[in-house]
């Protein structure tokens, strides 16, 4: 039952991404290309998602626990440091080069397009590389959002 519901939630997300245009790099890159072929559509995606989640979370956090767990699993990190800002800057550079972000690409796998698989494969390689670098140096990073 729990996994059926989880699957359906993933489906809602996947349909949302698919019709929003987030799975389409041409549209994503045009959103950022204000000086060129600008397409402001993604502002509506981000705005719609953010406002819905803002209201939704208000309602959900009014309860003491989620339906299928004893507690909410929220990121505990508080520090705004070089790792957060630098990592986010690097992510932005990669997003600007490829046009896919992870949330757009995962549902896009369902289109069966090989370009999406190439991108997601490269993201996985990047994650593994980053984990390896982290394991060499400082203590383990905080939980991913």
């Amino acid at each position: 039952m729990r996994f059926v519901i989880t699957y359906l939630i993933g489906l809602v997300f996947g349909v949302g991404i698919a019709i929003s245009g987030m799975a389409n790099p041409a549209k994503v890159l045009n959103f950022f290309d204000i000086a060129g072929s600008w397409d402001p559509s993604l502002a509506f995606v981000m705005g719609g998602a953010l406002i819905t989640t803002l209201i939704g979370y208000r309602l959900v956090f009014g309860r003491s626990a989620p339906m299928f767990d004893t507690r909410f699993h929220l990121p505990t990190g508080r520090s705004i440091d070089l790792r957060l800002v630098g990592g986010s800057a690097v992510f932005g550079i990669g997003w600007g080069i490829a046009g896919f972000c992870p949330g757009g690409a995962l549902p896009a796998l369902g289109t069966g397009r090989w370009e999406v698989f190439a991108f997601v494969g490269a993201v996985i390689a990047g994650i593994l590389l980053a984990r390896f670098v982290q394991s060499l140096g400082a203590p383990a990073a905080g939980a991913s959002a």
Binding site: V90, G103, G126, R131
Partner: peptide, 22 residues
């Protein structure tokens, strides 16, 4: 660009602790 961009995304989101959705 797709592959290099993807690797950079993977590095960035790991250190940054999340992406557009998270």
């Amino acid at each position: 660009m797709l592959v290099v961009g993807g690797m950079i995304v993977g590095l960035g989101v790991t250190f940054g602790g999340g992406c557009t959705s998270g």
